[in-house]
Write a protein that binds this DNA or RNA. Sequence first.
DNA 1: ATATTTGCTTTCAAATTGCAAGTGCAAGTT
DNA 2: AACTTGCACTTGCAATTTGAAAGCAAATAT
Lengths: 139, 139
Amino acid sequence: MSSIKKRSNCPISCSLDIWGDKWSLLIVRDLIQLKQATYGDLLKGEEKIATNILATRLQMLEEQGIILKAKHPDSKAKVLYTLTQKGIDLLPLLIEIHLWTEKYGTIPEDKKALVKEAKKDREAFINRIIQDLQESIVN
Amino acid sequence: MSSIKKRSNCPISCSLDIWGDKWSLLIVRDLIQLKQATYGDLLKGEEKIATNILATRLQMLEEQGIILKAKHPDSKAKVLYTLTQKGIDLLPLLIEIHLWTEKYGTIPEDKKALVKEAKKDREAFINRIIQDLQESIVN
DNA sequence: ATATTTGCTTTCAAATTGCAAGTGCAAGTT
DNA sequence: AACTTGCACTTGCAATTTGAAAGCAAATAT
């Protein structure tokens, strides 16, 4: 339906065409933290995304193969959103964002430990979290 | 003037509040490549940014301490835009974007060598480019 | 059977974008 | 001195996107 139009072939530009907005990466962030979430879970995020925006973002992220819709094991009324490998692989990007913010902005107290760990051994940190997420994918 | 309103204290959210749009990171990309550019240079980018958007983005990026306006040595009519250290430090982010695109999208022929180099020794690659940019800062 | 929850869709005002057309200034040309 | 050119924006305006709220059908809970 709303397939994306590329402005150029530049990798940055193409990536921004996909998730270059104020919300998409926040959804990815939430799915990294929660591993899986319902529509309602994602609405509860602290940035208070509007329901229509969430709906269109979820559509486009699924279209782009970044997230996956699955049936909730407990209830037919619920939908579970999870990351694909393509979505999981956005983690290094999110970590770089944290490192940049740590240098030039402020990191909330409860995330300082994580950032410290990521700085200490970036590779190990990324691998650990990715491993963790991949396990929950294989359901 | 147009100071940014934070949606939350999350580092991702705060970062997106600053450069979470389709254009800001493209300007940073161009300044990394060109080291310094005039308004006209930036307009010539292949994505064809509109002049009003360029003007407001430059304002905001300067406001956020990511770029710097300097006088052109040749002409008083010209302005040179350069990155600050804060702007230069967005480079690792841009590299991660390239790596993600390499895995899931397509990299234009002329950039494949750079991506390969970045993959081979990320740290060295980043340091080399940053060093290079820092030299042009000290004017 | 009725009420509530869930995952959206619709509506609509407000903000942002994109395009075309200026504007003001400095340097060079005639 | 007037005239053109190039540069860095600014303005105006239509089109798109966003955000807040309300609506809705299907699935559960009571």
